[in-house]
């Protein structure tokens, strides 16, 4: 590492502060921060809280881009504070604000309760008619790699709310279900173990849901985990259109296979990998 890389530099950090007991609306407060190579926005906020202003409030937990607690608006873009290095964003001025399209509880802490309520509405779990199999499965639900890849991408969602903060439809419509909940609905609908399309259809196909999305693509562009909610929403629309035109093929949900069931293995033996060296 070059010497200049480890040198500190002073940058101006504008943090949007809001105290519910005294403020009517958020105000930007300027802090000077000595930034070094590798320092994340979350590190910077901790440094300011420790050395300049202990009243600064922000939400965080894992510090490694897994929990989704620290999403905030960093220089105008929704990002995870723990996953964003300050010098990757700026070397002069940094503006940190709470996620838009959510109410602000205090300083950089958004109220994510509406996000989670909408998530619950889409039944974000495997729905099956054979309840006993869900409670005490008689075996494993074995999926092929092709079945897995259909929903794998959408399982990486950490519910940080960055997609909703970037969504222009959510900006003007508080009741819009939002990219996170819709992508999660599709994640379960496309799962071969699930049989809940019809129970979710009334929620995702209703007003203020998938058909309010006109593909701005911002949710996918800002997602810190590459979940691509915009893709899931378009696929969901296709499923709903197919269902409306009676063209949606209903396949029975995957059945559990008992651990001692050898019958399938006889029919479809595991493929032998090709030799990697000359015999």
């Amino acid at each position: 590492m070059k010497r200049q890389d480890v040198q500190e530099r002073i940058i101006s950090v504008y943090i949007h502060r809001f105290d519910p007991t005294s403020d009517k609306k958020p105000r930007a407060v300027l802090y000077e921060l000595a930034v070094e190579q590798g320092m994340t926005v979350l590190d910077g906020l901790h440094r300011i809280k420790e050395t300049q202003d202990p009243t600064l409030a922000f939400r965080f937990s894992c510090r490694m881009g897994v929990c989704g607690s620290c999403a905030m608006l960093i220089n105008g873009k929704p990002m995870l504070a723990c996953n964003t290095q300050i010098l990757d964003v700026t070397d002069k001025a940094l503006t940190v604000a709470p996620l838009p399209n959510f109410r602000v509880v205090r300083d950089l802490v958004p109220d994510l309760a509406p996000l989670f309520k909408k998530h619950v509405q889409v039944n974000p779990y495997i729905v099956r008619t054979d309840g006993h199999e869900m409670e005490s499965p008689s075996g494993e639900f074995i999926q092929t790699p092709e079945e897995l890849i259909k929903y794998l991408q959408f399982t990486y969602c950490i519910k940080c709310g960055a997609c909703v903060a970037a969504c222009p439809t959510a900006a003007t419509d508080e009741n819009y279900l939002g990219p996170m909940a819709l992508a999660q609905a599709y994640r379960y609908i496309v799962d071969s173990r699930d049989d809940g399309f019809h129970s979710r259809k009334s929620v995702v196909g209703a007003d203020k849901a998938v058909f309010n999305c006109h593909y701005a693509g911002e949710c996918s562009a800002v997602c810190p985990k590459g979940v691509d909610p915009a893709r899931a929403i378009q696929f969901m629309k296709r499923e709903l259109v197919r269902d409306y035109l009676l063209m949606r093929r209903h396949t029975a949900p995957l059945k559990a296979r008992a651990l001692n069931d050898k019958s399938k293995e006889k029919k479809t033996p595991l493929p032998v990998p090709p030799y990697t060296v000359d015999r």
Partner: peptide
């Protein structure tokens, strides 16, 4: 809490 919805600006 403070409302923070972007409105038409959010487009």
């Amino acid at each position: 809490t403070s409302g923070n919805r972007l409105g038409v600006k959010g487009w």
